[in-house]
C-alpha cells in the first residue's frame, strides 16, 4: 500500500498513467451521464435529447430533462464524489482498508440525527421553517462527528487496530440503526415510509434545490481534501516517519477526519444511507493508480460518481415506473466486494 519512492506525484511515469486513467474515467462518466439522461420510465431518443438541449424540443421534454433527470444525475455525481472522497480520507487516516463511513456507522450517525431532526420538526404544528432543508447537512454533520468520536473512544485501546475499528464501527452502526427505528416508530405512517425509503438510500426526489444544498459542501471540502492529500500520503509512511518529516500527525488526523465526516454527512443528508461507495471506489482507484492520495483521491471521486450514476440508472429502469432505492443497488455491487476484502485482508 505504501510506495516509498519520490513523494512528488507530478513528474514520474505513474503520474502520466494516472492522468490517463483519470481522463478515461471522466470520459466514461460523461458517456454514462448521456445514457442515463436518455433512460427512464419515459423514453427519450438521443435525437430528442439533442433537440431539447439545443432548445428546439417540446416543453414536456424540457421539463423531463432539465427539471427531473438532470438534477438527479448531477446529484448522483456529487454524492458519488462526496462519499468516495470521504471513504478515501477515512481509509487513509485510519490506515484501514475497511474504513468506509457507510460501514462503520458515520452514515447511520448522520441518519439518526437527520431523522430525529425531521421528527422534531414534524412535531410542531406549523409549517417546517424555511431553513429546515438547508439545515439538514449541518444536522447530519453533527451526527457524523458524534458517531466518529464514539467509534474512536470505544475502539481506543493503546491505539486503534483496523479490525477493532471496523468491529466497533459495525456495533455503532447497529446502535444508531436501532435508535433510528425507535424514532421512526413514533412517526406517523407516511413519515415512517418516507424515512425508510430515505434511509435505504435514494435520490429519486432530486431537484435543483437538493443539488444546491449539497454543492457548497462538495465545492468546499473536496478541494480541501485534495490540498491535504500530500499529508495523507506522508502519514502512510508511518507515524514516526511522518513526525520526522514535520507533520503534526494528531492535529492533521483530526482535520482530515472532520473533512471526511463533512463530505459523508452532507452526502447522506441528501441521498440517505448509501453504503459501500466509500469502500469500493478508493479500492478500485488504488488498484488503478497506486496508493498516493494526490492521485488516488481524484480517481476515486470519479469512480464514486460512476458507481452512483450507474446504480441510479439501474435503480430507475429495472422496475420502471417503480423505483428501487439506489442504495440497494450499490449494496448489491458493494457487499460482495466487502466480503472479498474481509477474506483477503490478512492483518
Amino acid at each position: 500500500m505504501t510506495d516509498t519512492d519520490d513523494l512528488s506525484p507530478f513528474k514520474d511515469r505513474v503520474f502520466k498513467r494516472s492522468l490517463y486513467f483519470f481522463f478515461f474515467l471522466l470520459f466514461l462518466l460523461l458517456i454514462l451521464t448521456v445514457i442515463s439522461l436518455g433512460s427512464g420510465h419515459l423514453s427519450l431518443s438521443p435525437g430528442d435529447i439533442w433537440q431539447t438541449v439545443t432548445g428546439s424540443g417540446t416543453e414536456a421534454h424540457q421539463l423531463l430533462l432539465f427539471q427531473f433527470r438532470l438534477p438527479r444525475i448531477i446529484l448522483a455525481v456529487l454524492v458519488g464524489i462526496g462519499m468516495a472522497t470521504a471513504g478515501a480520507l477515512f481509509q487513509g487516516v485510519t490506515q484501514n482498508g475497511l474504513a468506509d463511513p457507510g460501514i462503520i456507522g458515520i452514515h447511520t450517525g448522520s441518519g439518526f440525527f437527520v431523522v430525529l431532526f425531521l421528527y422534531l420538526v414534524s412535531l410542531s404544528q406549523d409549517q417546517p421553517p424555511w431553513w429546515a432543508n438547508i439545515g439538514l447537512p449541518f444536522v447530519a454533520f453533527v451526527g457524523g462527528i458524534t458517531a466518529a468520536i464514539l467509534i474512536y473512544v470505544l475502539a481506543w485501546k493503546e491505539g486503534v487496530t483496523p479490525i477493532r475499528l471496523v468491529l466497533v464501527g459495525i456495533g455503532i452502526n447497529a446502535g444508531f440503526s436501532a435508535a433510528i427505528l425507535l424514532v421512526q416508530l413514533r412517526m406517523s405512517e407516511s413519515d415512517f415510509n418516507r424515512a425508510i425509503i430515505w434511509l435505504s438510500g435514494s435520490i429519486w426526489n432530486a431537484s435543483w434545490a437538493t443539488v444546491l444544498r449539497l454543492l457548497p459542501w462538495i465545492l468546499l471540502f473536496v478541494p480541501l481534501a485534495l490540498y491535504k492529500a500530500r499529508i495523507l500520503s506522508v502519514m502512510q509512511l508511518g507515524e514516526e516517519m511522518a513526525v520526522g518529516l514535520g507533520t503534526a500527525v494528531e492535529k492533521e488526523r483530526i482535520k482530515l477526519l472532520i473533512i471526511g465526516v463533512a463530505l459523508s454527512a452532507a452526502s447522506v443528508s441528501v441521498a440517505g444511507g448509501v453504503a459501500f461507495v466509500g469502500l469500493v471506489a478508493p479500492h478500485l482507484a488504488r488498484r488503478l493508480v497506486g496508493g498516493k492520495f494526490q492521485r488516488m483521491i481524484p480517481v476515486s471521486a470519479v469512480i464514486g460518481a460512476i458507481l452512483i450514476v450507474l446504480s441510479d440508472s439501474i435503480a430507475r429502469t429495472v422496475l420502471a415506473p417503480s423505483e428501487i432505492p439506489v442504495g440497494l443497488i450499490v449494496s448489491v455491487i458493494g457487499a460482495p466486494y466487502f466480503i472479498y476484502l474481509l477474506i483477503t485482508i490478512k492483518e
Binding site: 427512464g40 421539463l63 415510509n193 425509503i197 415506473p321
Partner: peptide, 9 residues
C-alpha cells in the same frame, strides 16, 4: 409513491 416520471406520463 408517485415517481415524477410516472406522473409526467
Amino acid at each position: 409513491d408517485l415517481p415524477y416520471e410516472a406522473v409526467m406520463e
